[in-house]
Design a protein around this nucleic acid. Sequence first.
DNA 1: CGGGGATTTGATCCGTGTCAATTACAGTGG
DNA 2: CCACTGTAATTGACACGGATCAAATCCCCG
Lengths: 266, 266
Amino acid sequence: MSSTTSLLVRKLECFQPLSQEEKAMLEQCTRPLREVGARQDIIREGDTPDKVFLILAGFACRYKIIEGGRRQIMAYLVPGDFCDFQAFILNEMDHNIGTLSACQVVEIPRSVILAMTDRPAIARSLWWASLVDSATLREWLVNMGQRPAEQRIAHLLCELLVRLEAVGLVTDNTYMLPITQTDLGDTMGLTVVHANRMLASLRDEALIEVDVRKITIRDVRRLKAFSGFNANYLHLDNPARMTRRSDAWIPRGDLSKARTDNADPG
Amino acid sequence: MSSTTSLLVRKLECFQPLSQEEKAMLEQCTRPLREVGARQDIIREGDTPDKVFLILAGFACRYKIIEGGRRQIMAYLVPGDFCDFQAFILNEMDHNIGTLSACQVVEIPRSVILAMTDRPAIARSLWWASLVDSATLREWLVNMGQRPAEQRIAHLLCELLVRLEAVGLVTDNTYMLPITQTDLGDTMGLTVVHANRMLASLRDEALIEVDVRKITIRDVRRLKAFSGFNANYLHLDNPARMTRRSDAWIPRGDLSKARTDNADPG
DNA sequence: CGGGGATTTGATCCGTGTCAATTACAGTGG
DNA sequence: CCACTGTAATTGACACGGATCAAATCCCCG
């Protein structure tokens, strides 16, 4: 059973090593395991949960529904991710969390979290995780605002490759992506139809391979270059897991050259 | 001089009241005041700052430049906002922070921050602020992904109204917005040209008024309804500042009805 | 073998982007 | 006080990426 939780340990150790004792503490929270079917809400907007959920298996997401029924997925929660740390401070959920595929989750009571955060190393690691979540959100915003559909999807696939690699869920550049193309569309602000076409296009260009719900990146370097992917925002600082930067786009934070307009100067 | 920093106190008290002592502690950090001209970078991607910056006056933003020179602004930093708390944990900046208008900032050394976070009330308030930043980012993602240009801009103007109200920078539904339309476009993922047209359209519909760099919301209720704005994500929990919810769009976190597609079922 | 979602594909429409000028200003120097 | 300069705001004509609408398959599951 510890092989499931160790996802969490594995992820947090991307930031800094933990002692045996600390790892043991984290391993403990597999107790009240809960199976949740696909497309079920775990937490709803307006809720004031008194526990934290940890995903052990499957994909979940943060999402909002706006007037008109449109849905925006704002984050993917993959194995090893916490759901709603924020509920500790912000009393009311401002968005929903729902499963995309069937999931295994554990509910961790407030008291356990408080005990964990008494260990500075764990507390810092959890803080790191929440900051990485924010950084990811920012990158998604860049993705949505500035990249055309095909590169947007490519970028997401690169991100998932790196994130899932960090928790050991990638083999031969292949990982399970148990979501529908509708979900993908709602993630990228595209219609299913267009998401489908762009996916097909990536396939045609031999960049990826799509099996049933399995993605294979056929040319990592080219896909990263195509989508402008740079893993720095994931802050996988532990050298052991550091992705090589060689094939990443290197930004030049230079206002004077960028202020021309939103346009492509090419 | 305390009238400037009290912005910070005022903002943090949106979350919870602070003692005189705590307020005094926060007021202290006006010391090394720095004037920064418009469109200057305060922190660059790749930097590893050892201090935290607090905006006292003016507008700054988080932004990234991607391949091709396109810029995405990911957050506005208004008076009372901290710049880079994350640098305490994440060793390297993954984005830039630059001024939009001329700004007054203070640099707060690491030691002072550490001292502040020894006070639980302050620590929790700062944590609250960072969670609100994340929530805002999520709302921006929804905005970019799901709303057409005109509503997108309207939504931003509503948000700024509420945020600036919270720090006392709004009078008669009017506030200074010292940014160019190019900045606005880069914020919303639009070209200047289109941003300009949508702004003109909002003006024509008598929803807003645009002076030089001054925005007046002529009909708050209608602008909120038009843009689907709901202030809940800003978590202004302190009842004294609570915005009335009456005119806000109320979501229904209902997967079954939303899963139809990304399309508008109307 | 039948039913229902998920994936694909085609045809057409429209919101934004692109390109190109023109106008409105704020600051500067004569 | 006015011409000069550069940036920001506007406006028009036209092109294109994605959205829409509509139908087929495909495929998992009972």
